[in-house]
């Protein structure tokens, strides 16, 4: 178990290094950041000036080394736009995104599993069909449209929640709901099929023979074992939530990393974009690592080896 965790941490470190390298290659080698900032038509002398300033005329190896060591110290360059270091800008926005993400997860995961289990309990019943249609909606819906509909109906018409801004329940519910829908769709479908698979196994028949009620059979026995594949899906959904945050934060004016990324993109602020990519990827890698550990913990066949 300890060996597994150590190996998993090393793996996460390697993935982080690879991500950083890709960010570097895409930014310096493939594209030309200077032309992005000062425009394609700028004069060549002006371009060279800026290149020297940014150290872009140094050999690639030197640039790479500088970039990587900087990143590991938490320095991802200076914003073209604000002329201040990018990392503090991103980290300042991070709590808002984590807050939104956690509320979304707390909304999505239990609800998705409840829906999946209900559907699995009576396959092909009307409840199953209803849940299936809802889930399909979640998988295929366009987030900004859902966001706008929620704003129109729930915030504007009913006046239950605020249309935009940052704060408590009245602010967070709508963006979280919007973000939650896709993961609810996918996780509930996954949970349904995982639970149905478990329900076919012999230990379920034995659990019924013990005199457990159908609910106990499904919610304690089948669900615990189905949790193993469900958690794998959950890992992917963390990425979905963080990606979705860009659109949703923009629509709801939520001051998180997503909104910052959109602003950085529209201002062609490459260092700032890179910093947000680094932070968001780091978060995805880390949550996936934690989920993997949870996965191992839930699966005694791996845990005791």
């Amino acid at each position: 178990m300890t060996i597994f965790i150590i190996r998993r941490i090393l793996q996460a470190a390697v993935v982080t290094l690879i991500t950083l390298s890709v960010v570097f290659v895409v930014g310096r080698v493939v594209g030309d950041p200077v032309r992005i900032v000062i425009g394609i038509e700028a004069e060549e002398t002006r371009v060279q000036e800026v290149r020297d300033q940014l150290g872009l005329n140094d050999p690639l190896t030197v640039q790479y080394w500088r970039f990587m060591t900087g990143a590991l110290r938490g320095e991802m360059g200076t914003s073209f736009w604000t002329r201040t270091p990018t990392m503090p800008m991103v980290l300042e926005r991070l709590p808002a995104t984590i807050y939104l993400g956690v509320v979304t997860a707390l909304l999505a995961f239990p609800l998705a599993i409840l829906l999946g289990a209900t559907a699995a309990l009576k396959p092909h019943s009307w409840a199953d069909r209803l849940i299936n249609v809802t889930a399909l909606g979640g998988v295929s819906i366009v987030e900004f449209w859902l966001a706008l509909m929620l704003i129109l109906v729930v915030a504007v018409q009913l006046g239950w929640f605020k249309t935009s801004g940052y704060g408590g329940v009245e602010y967070v519910v709508l963006p979280a709901l919007t973000l939650a829908y896709k993961p609810i769709g996918r996780i509930s479908q996954m949970a349904r099929s995982a639970i149905i698979d478990e329900l076919r196994k012999p230990y379920i028949k034995a659990a019924r023979a013990k005199g457990l009620s159908e609910k106990q059979v499904v919610f304690t026995h089948a669900l615990k074992n189905a949790a193993i594949p469900i958690i794998t899906t959950t890992g992917d959904e963390v990425a979905t939530i963080l990606n979705g945050a860009m659109v949703v934060e923009t629509v709801f004016g939520w001051p998180g990393v997503g909104l910052l990324t959109i602003n950085a993109l529209s201002r062609r602020d490459l260092p700032l974009v890179e910093a947000t990519v680094f932070v968001v990827t780091g978060m995805i890698i880390m949550t996936n690592m934690l989920l993997d550990v949870a996965y191992t913990y839930l699966n005694p066949r791996i845990r005791f080896q």
Binding site: K201, P202, Y203, K205, A206, A207, H221, K224, N225, L298, N299, P300, R301
Partner: peptide, 8 residues
Amino acid sequence: QATLDPGF
């Protein structure tokens, strides 16, 4: 073996 729940 298969009729015991692997998770408990």
